[in-house]
């Protein structure tokens, strides 16, 4: 969504540069976005810097934007036994890819169905989808459903299935598909195309921008998720990346808040040091940071292609 706005702003900036009158406003807009970008980038730089700082200087002098005393110890510690991290990576990538493909397919199928004006039950169906955004069964029924009826506990499907269909994405997709004129579909029918063929060769290519946007949402949801793993995964071989990070962080926080008054002993030194934790965060976020800007070109061109055609 924000990419659209950025392109619009860029375009606005370009056209306004021609006339000197509005160059002031474009400067303000540019300044605003510069400031915003800096605000977003600084924490990221801080994380990277901490991950490269010597642990002891870190504790004594706090955080700095540039490492005070450069050290690769945190990374060498992690790469000494990279098996766990690589395994978690594999799980997250697999879940993200499978989840996005199947999720996108099911979302567009559902949205297409309830967007067709010649479908008699589209109103009740839409209400049915919309209803679930307002009311849900709650955590425990959800847990019972997944573990006792679908028997997904400790399988990779537990990380995928619950996010396959999100009513919000269905409704966004439906909003887009509503704009495809029924005549286009009818013309396909007249030419003798089957429903599947219409869907795959006419509807999907026309809705490419929506597919890209929603596909991106879905893949981020899968990539960033630790919640499903927390609930359903006990097998260490199936732990996704974010859950691995989340567990380290939350356990440290929990213990430092709760342990001071309890007479059980926990060796806090066994946890990864601050720089090691940040190094893990960098390694977890890293690929997405590289992949996303590379793909972004396609997203933008995808969006514009769609807008011209639509």
């Amino acid at each position: 969504m924000s990419t659209i706005q950025v392109t619009i702003n860029k375009k606005a900036a370009k056209s306004s540069l021609a006339s000197k009158k509005s160059s002031w406003s474009s400067r303000i807009i540019n300044l605003f976005f510069c400031a915003l970008s800096i605000l977003l980038i600084i924490p990221l730089i801080l994380v990277i810097s901490i991950s490269f700082t010597d642990e002891k200087t870190l504790l004594q002098h706090g955080y700095h934007l540039l490492p005070e005393k450069f050290s690769l110890e945190a990374y060498s510690l992690i790469f000494k036994s990279p098996g766990v991290l690589l395994n978690a990576y594999g799980i997250t990538i697999l879940v993200t890819v499978i989840g996005t493909v199947i999720g996108l397919f099911l979302t567009s199928l559902t949205a297409y169905t309830i967007s067709r004006k010649d479908y008699r039950y589209r109103k009740p169906m839409t209400l049915y989808v919309f209803f679930t955004t307002l009311f849900s069964g709650g955590l425990v029924p959800f847990y019972i459903m997944v573990t006792q009826y679908l028997h997904l506990k400790d399988t990779m499907w537990a990380l995928i299935v619950p996010y396959l269909l999100s009513p919000f994405y269905i409704l966004v997709m439906k909003g887009f598909l509503d704009k495809i004129p029924l005549e286009v579909i009818e013309s396909g029918k007249i030419d003798g195309a089957s429903e599947w063929r219409i869907f795959f060769t006419i509807v999907l290519p026309l809705s490419l921008p929506a597919l890209v946007t929603i596909g991106l949402f879905i893949s981020f949801q899968y990539w960033n998720d630790w919640w499903l793993g927390l609930l359903f995964i006990d097998d260490q071989k199936l732990v996704p990346l974010q859950l691995m990070l989340y567990r380290v962080m939350s356990t440290i926080e929990y213990l430092s808040n709760n342990m001071s008054t309890v007479n059980v002993s926990i060796d806090m030194t066994q946890f990864p040091s601050l720089s090691a934790r940040m190094a893990m965060a960098v390694l977890a976020a890293g690929p997405m940071m590289i992949v996303f800007p590379m793909l972004q070109r396609f997203f933008i061109s995808g969006l514009t292609v769609g807008s011209v055609k639509g």
């Binding site: 927390l230 609930l231 939350s250 926080e253 213990l255």
Partner: peptide
Amino acid sequence: AHTFADYNQKMNT
């Protein structure tokens, strides 16, 4: 095995 931080929620569920 669970972690100390998850334990409460996990067991409640």
